[in-house]
Design a protein around this nucleic acid. Structure first.
Lengths: 253, 253
DNA sequence: TAGTGGTCTAGACCACATA
DNA sequence: ATGTGGTCTAGACCACTAC
């Protein structure tokens, strides 16, 4: 029968995985290699089935899981496309802060101000989060996001210097759309998932000034590590969220 | 062909839905009706296929979605079981506060103290959250959860009085395991999903005393509405979380 | 050994988008 | 008209659990 890889009917070894999962891994490899770029279509199910010498149903199940992982998007009649942070309706996928009014018409923060953008050597905690070594080159960015003229989010973020050569405050400030969209288009880095640790804190004086509040105003501290393919950490982000007019919204399944 | 319901090949009406989704709805009805209780097995795929006069593959796809929604759990070789909050490895499914140390050996809060438990008439905000009318009977519970002797969570929660007749402080205090497990076993209410709104706040004096902190310590305010089948809200919960030794952990897909 | 869910295949037809 | 993904079926075999 079909044994495009080695493991079928290999029922004893611990490394056994079903055929569709092997196909999924193969497609994932090609996604990571950049063979198909974010927003572009991947080959049709029939095409992939022929390439890998399996049935269409097996490819379908592999793509089903990729779609469930938000790595690709199916569109009936058109094809299957590599997921992207650029499209309108999935922009700011990772931003869970929403206005208390519940108005979903305001898509994302209205105004963004780059406060700082510089290269430096990674401190121990930053290096650990990004799987780098202490002292490795990183890019640090500080910015403020405002809604309706009200500064609401203060973010510091760190990126591996190697992967983001040439990123400057000017390019960040000039970019329309989400930062993750810029990362895709200019640096070929697609963020797939993220983990956040949330705390309640009081800001220091410098932070309070940037947000236009007193240092007695409690804020959400949101520490995020964002990952690209194969669980590679590519960004550490520390945000301070004002929650007097907004709240962090979470769905529990 | 098979038309166990009315809508197959009904391509024009807006209410069209594929066969497997109709089967899913039928199974859901029976789940809600309590035909199969949490922890119990539902009939086998072959059995359900025969009942509904569809192929096993169609039932399979219906159950796939129910499993993805965390309403049932598949176990190879054994069957498919109604999801429950009672089992060890899915206990405290909705509790996202974890120790900073990352130790996952401590399953859930060690000590739980019922501070208060009384029946009263719902205020406007509570009634709205629970889809009740202002003044309807509700049960209000206040409790403190502690880890290693340190009070960490202060919770107020409101339940519809009609659905939780006979729930007292004594029964709450005497119950081993998660509160949602008690709800299933004693009141037939199974929480399926929840939504949380998170803010950073400062406690009032009474809250500070119960948590053993000063009112200058910022806390996470977590407002949760938990839903049973068919998106029926069945609990409003307002929690205050200390985040000096713990943090709220969230996965973004 | 029997019964369950898990995988894989092959083929038919439907719904949707594009040309 | 063509090609895409979406649905539905039928049958075979595998993996796991319980008896």
């Amino acid at each position: 029968m079909n044994t495009p890889l080695s493991a079928l009917s290999d029922t004893s070894t611990p490394s056994f995985s079903p055929l569709y999962r092997q196909i999924k891994a193969l497609i994932l490899q090609r996604l990571q290699a950049g063979e198909w770029k974010p927003g572009e279509p991947i080959p049709s199910e029939m095409d992939l089935a022929a390439r890998f010498r399996v049935s269409q149903g097996t490819v379908r199940k592999a793509i089903d899981e990729l779609a469930a992982d938000n790595l690709v998007v199916r569109r009936q009649g058109r094809g299957t496309f590599v997921a992207t942070h650029t499209e309108q309706h999935v922009q700011y996928r990772f931003l869970k802060l929403v206005p208390d009014s519940g108005d979903l018409n305001t898509e994302g923060p209205a105004e963004r101000t780059i406060v700082d953008c510089k290269r430096l050597r990674a401190a121990a905690d930053v290096a650990r989060a990004l799987s780098l070594r202490t002292g490795d080159a990183v890019l640090q960015v500080r910015r403020v996001l405002a809604y309706g003229g009200v500064p609401t989010i203060l973010e510091d973020l760190w990126l591996p210097g190697v992967s983001f050569k040439g990123l400057t405050a000017e390019r960040l400030a000039g970019w329309r759309g989400p930062m993750y969209s810029l990362f895709e288009a200019e640096f070929g880095v697609h963020m797939v998932r993220a983990e956040e640790k949330i705390r309640a804190v009081l800001p220091d004086d410098a932070q309070a000034v940037l947000l236009g509040i007193t240092s007695a105003t409690p804020l959400l501290s949101v520490e995020r590590v964002a990952y690209t393919y194969h669980d590679t950490p590519m960004e550490l982000r520390r945000g301070l969220y004002r929650t007097d007019t907004h709240h962090y919204r979470n769905q529990l399944g």
